[in-house]
Design a protein around this nucleic acid. Structure first.
Lengths: 217, 217
DNA sequence: ATTCATATAGAAACACTGTTTCAAAAATGA
DNA sequence: TCATTTTTGAAACAGTGTTTCTATATGAAT
């Protein structure tokens, strides 16, 4: 392993433009690699995402992937982060509503639709598709950001006195865990079928809003 | 293997676990094998349960496992079923209570404790530790049997008018999914810590009983 | 520009995995 | 006893993630 401090000082003394060019180059290369991995993920599922297949798709030796991401886990982490971005986009596509109860309901539906539309991503992110992968601080933070819409609704509902004031993170966790539970059991094949899963999901959201919002309809 | 002295010394040596079990019935041999796999599972986790390690522990060729279980999935299925038995035992160890609300709460706590005590089993059963494994009809039925205590409580509560009459399976699913969601997020490293997970779990049970039982305290 | 140092390329190897093959041996039935 | 299965047990096969390894190119320094 090279000494990072010396390498940095050398580069700092030398042309910064060159370093930037090279950094940009490797950065785009990384993006290409992630895109290749992502396309395999969506086309053939998580178990098809192997170092060799990604390398084959990129027509490069496997070593390059290790140079760029350190390990497979490093690449998987990027897929996790991309999944967070996709989820965040899905949430932001939900139109805001004055009725926070309905808005939360729609967000819940969006979460379900994300899990069905991007099932492979969902498995990577929350389904333990790569059992070796455990999100570290940065990944967790990105996840929290993706769930921000939910956080906002909860916070606003508390502000407006529609919801009992508690730790918002706890309430978000309550919602998240409940909905994830249904999805995970469904994806794991523990529920009798898609219809039962959807019905259960529907009931989960209803139950949650009913419990959390102080005022019933 | 043509060396006669080796063969002779083998006969002189004490019988291995595999040879002893083989002398009895195929059924006991299967049980021995499952027990070996189970001990590896509990000692070293799901990822340590490999055909070779099990074969090594049993001092037999890997082929024997394929003869007995067909594939690794066949062996994993046995671990799943054993996990169901353990969970059912855990549920049955919970003392019955007149107060169905408290009883359900205790059952919920037992589920949490199972997931913490037998984490490896839990991962195999519901955590997707062996992603290739999907429970088929028989396994699902065994799972339903393990959850029977919960089913009984829900049915009784409905009978006594403590709970709105609905499809009991749906209500059990609601409870199961909610609690599993917390456990799965926790085991997946998506919650900030054990304390947060326990608090969330506690809140989940409270919320469930509050929603499901018609009468508040 | 020429040298020196470093980092990469690209194939091959290593240590695993689940699974299958296959000659030899053992058990079984006629 | 002979013929016919079945079982053995090692080895091989096709994968996996990861690490050598040398030749080569590409960067920095004189």
């Amino acid at each position: 392993m090279q000494d990072p401090s010396t390498a940095l000082s050398k580069k700092e003394r030398a042309l910064t433009t060159y370093q930037k060019a090279k950094l940009q180059h490797t950065e785009t290369l990384k993006l290409s690699m992630i895109e290749a991995a992502a396309s395999i993920l969506q086309e053939s599922g998580a178990e098809a995402v192997t170092i060799r297949k990604v390398a084959e798709k990129m027509e490069c030796p496997t070593k390059v992937i290790y140079n760029l991401f350190g390990s497979k886990e490093g690449l998987v982490k990027e897929l996790f982060l991309e999944g967070c971005t996709l989820l965040a986009a899905e949430f932001q596509a939900v139109p805001k509503q004055q009725d926070l109860k309905l808005y939360l309901y729609d967000l819940g539906q969006a979460y379900w639709e994300f899990s069905q539309k991007y099932t492979s991503y969902y498995r990577v992110m929350f389904g333990g598709a790569f059992s070796e992968f455990k999100p570290e601080e940065e990944s967790l933070q990105t996840m929290v950001t993706a769930l921000e819409q939910v956080n906002i609704v909860v916070a606003e509902a508390m502000e407006q006195g529609l919801m009992a004031k508690e730790d918002p993170n706890l309430v978000v966790g309550l919602i998240w865990a409940s909905l994830h539970g249904v999805i995970d059991l469904y994806l794991g094949g523990h529920l009798p079928g898609a219809a039962a899963a959807q019905l259960l999901y529907e009931k989960s959201i209803s139950g949650l809003t009913q419990t959390l919002f102080v005022q019933a309809d």
